[in-house]
Nucleic acid binder design. Structure first.
Length: 616
RNA sequence: GGGGUGUUAGUUAAGCUGGUUAUAACGCCGGCCUGUCACGCCGGAGGCCACGGGUUCGAGUCCCGUACACCCCGCCA
């Protein structure tokens, strides 16, 4: 008899057969997704990455085939040969292949399967912990297969579009020299240079600028980056960027190229036509209205700055606000309104207080507004002056039944709490979906936004110095250069972030290629010429040899895939992700190593655990 | 480093103010069944209630600690 694989090659995928194929003999390979054994007839749902096809073993087939068919169990890997027949009146409208079925004449079990530890169905409730421990099985599930196939397509679209736009895909090293600042690096001890370490590149940033110096004009790369920081739902220790750098460009040129790329991704993967260009918002406006630099504009609930109003009313008669009787740098009061329509109970408001306390806030001052504009359910109500209350009601636009929420104190803290509170309420009140877009096919579900013109420096309260908000090689606005010495906080720069539904999906800048201005930027940061040379010598040197004006951007590929596919977690768009503690539950990485290995690397471990399980 | 939620058969869960032998569904095993597609029917096996202490006559249940997972703050573009 003809053998599967050797003689009998696969003729179709399990998602390919429709009514048009009726009468054909076909050969399918795949896994048993489900079986319905009627004793006489046996029905098998055969699955591969393209879909499901129903295979039938009828009673009239020979005894050996019938016996083998009864042995089939979930996840057995099999090959079948048979004839496509119409299902007649028994069509299954849920399946793409539901109009037909394959009547088997030959079956081979390539490999049996132990009972799987969790169901391999589209929707499962299984703890992620268990799914990660058997990732190869989780990856068999259709939703993850679709996601990774979409990701593959994203890579292809990116390479095609960037290639057609004249970009070169060039590689940069992963093992690089540690440079201080920015994210914490993973370190790799050097065997050949005793006592020295490589760092895993947190991005190709410096190298891509060197490509520009070298004259490559337009560079891109789909590249892994490594950052040893704590994880979040949208952060993994190793992640992928679409890294881009261009010479002789303005910010607008970079935007146009990236808009083209993002539009192509949405068009090719989802079939959605995004509206170009994407709107822009100034960083300062975003901070003022939304408390962060990645606002989700799919809903309102803007914040209202009350600092000046409170100062004007000498603290409004509210003891907690006495220190706001005069405006003071770094101290602010902000408010937002939960509309009466939300019909918030006291208990729910109390829960909000727990929510903000979880973020380090001391509490959540609040006031319910009644028909006459009076405040109720509020400790503020007792002492607030009527004038201040009227002014605040007007400022926040509060109507009867509305609930005003206040945060006050250190600016950064207020912004963090208010920004998170807004998102939390947006989800709770059903204004935005828990995750992803409401309707992936509707362009309005995709809120894309450039956030531009942020300050070049941030003031570090701890060290009392100005630090680069992005990196030290970002170009300041020409009209701001004059303030570098006198008022560094006022200097805006050509840095930009692309925001999608509240997630930062890309960030970059026009680089500073003028050595004279560069020197002034370092000086403003309190970095001496010697220090700068020590830290960034090779780049500074390179910039002195006729470096072209240049700029670039990096897109977070994982986040793009996460949002584009509507996945529930970033982990669902990464084939083999790490847990929140950076471990791999399947391979048990990181693991301990032998003393001998450490000796070769000229290092010793101080961790108590290393000694305990080194026998492994 | 800090806050929160969780951990009970292979999986998902129930288990109330502490009280006999810890339930169910799906999966698994055996039997029956030709039209199912969440197939159906009958029977069966399967548990260190995460781990370690404590309180109690008695702990899955109450208390403390630890581990792990997830979400958040800090951190991180």
């Amino acid at each position: 008899m003809a053998e599967f694989i050797k003689d009998l090659k696969r003729t179709h995928s399990c998602g390919a057969l429709t009514a048009e194929a009726v009468g054909q003999e076909v050969i399918l390979f795949g896994w048993v997704q489900n079986r319905r054994d009627h004793g006489g007839a046996v029905f098998i749902d055969l699955r591969d990455r393209e879909g499901l096809t129903q295979v039938v073993f009828e009673q009239d087939v020979d005894k050996a085939l019938q016996d083998l068919a009864h042995e089939l169990r979930l996840e057995y890997c099999i090959g079948i040969r048979g004839v496509v027949k119409s299902r007649g009146g028994n069509v299954n409208p849920k399946l793409k292949t539901g109009a037909i079925e394959v009547h088997a004449s030959q079956l081979q079990i390539f490999n049996r399967s132990e009972p799987v530890p969790f169901p391999l169905e589209d929707k499962i409730d299984t703890a992620e912990e268990k799914r990660l421990a058997h990732r190869y099985l989780d990856l068999r599930r259709a939703p993850l297969q679709r996601t990774l196939m979409a990701r593959s397509k994203m890579n292809l679209v990116t390479r095609t579009l960037m290639g057609e736009s004249g970009f070169l895909e060039l590689e940069t090293p992963y093992l690089v020299k540690y440079t201080p600042g920015g994210a914490r690096n993973f370190l790799v001890p050097s065997r050949l240079s005793a006592g020295k370490f490589y760092a895993l590149a947190e991005s190709p940033q410096l190298f891509k600028q060197l490509f520009m110096v070298a004259g490559f004009d337009k560079y891109f790369q789909i590249v892994k980056c490594f950052r040893d920081e704590d994880l979040r739902i949208d952060r993994q220790p190793e992640f992928t960027q679409i890294d881009v750098e261009m010479s002789f460009v303005t910010q607008d040129d970079v935007f146009a190229q990236i808009e083209k790329l993002v539009a192509a991704l949405w068009k090719e993967v989802l079939g959605v036509q995004l509206t170009l260009p994407f709107p822009r918002m100034k960083f300062a406006d975003s901070m003022r209205d939304y408390g962060n630099d990645k606002p989700d504009l799919r809903f309102g609930m803007k914040h209202v700055e009350l600092t000046a109003l409170v100062a004007e009313h000498k603290g409004c008669g509210i003891p907690m606000w006495a220190s706001f009787a005069e405006e003071k740098a770094g101290q602010i009061v902000k408010a937002m309104v939960v509309p009466a329509s939300a019909n918030f109970s006291r208990t729910e408001a109390d829960k909000l207080e727990d929510f903000v306390k979880g973020m380090g806030s001391k509490g959540l001052a609040r006031a319910k507004v009644d028909e006459t504009g009076n405040w109720t359910q509020s400790p503020l109500a007792k002492t607030v002056t009527p004038e201040a209350r009227t002014a605040i009601n007007a400022a926040v636009g509060a109507k009867a039944g509305d609930l005003i929420l206040f945060q006050f104190g250190r600016e950064a803290q207020v912004h963090t709490v208010m920004a998170n509170l807004r998102i939390h309420l947006g989800k709770k009140l059903g204004l935005i979906p828990e995750i992803g877009p409401k309707n992936a096919n509707d362009p309005a579900s995709w809120n894309l936004l450039w956030v531009v013109d942020p300050p070049l420096f941030e003031y570090d309260e701890d060290t009392k110095t100005w630090a680069a908000a992005h990196h030290a090689f970002t170009r300041p606005h020409d009209e701001c250069v004059q303030y570098l010495e006198t008022d560094p906080g006022k200097v805006l720069c050509y840095r930009y972030d692309l925001v999608l539904n509240g997630f930062e999906i890309a960030g970059g800048s026009i680089r500073l290629h003028d050595p004279a201005v560069q020197a002034r930027v370092f000086k403003a940061m309190g970095i001496s010429a010697e220090e700068a040379e020590e830290k960034f010598g090779f780049l500074l040197q390179a910039l002195r040899y006729g470096a072209p004006p240049h700029g670039g951007i990096a897109l977070g590929m994982d986040r793009l895939a996460f949002l584009l596919t509507g996945a529930e977690s970033l982990r669902d768009v990464i084939p083999f992700p790490k847990t929140q503690k950076g471990t791999d539950l399947m391979t048990d990485a990181p693991g301990s190593v032998l003393d001998k290995q450490l000796q070769e690397l000229h290092i010793a471990s101080r961790a108590p655990a290393a000694a305990a399980d080194k026998k492994e």
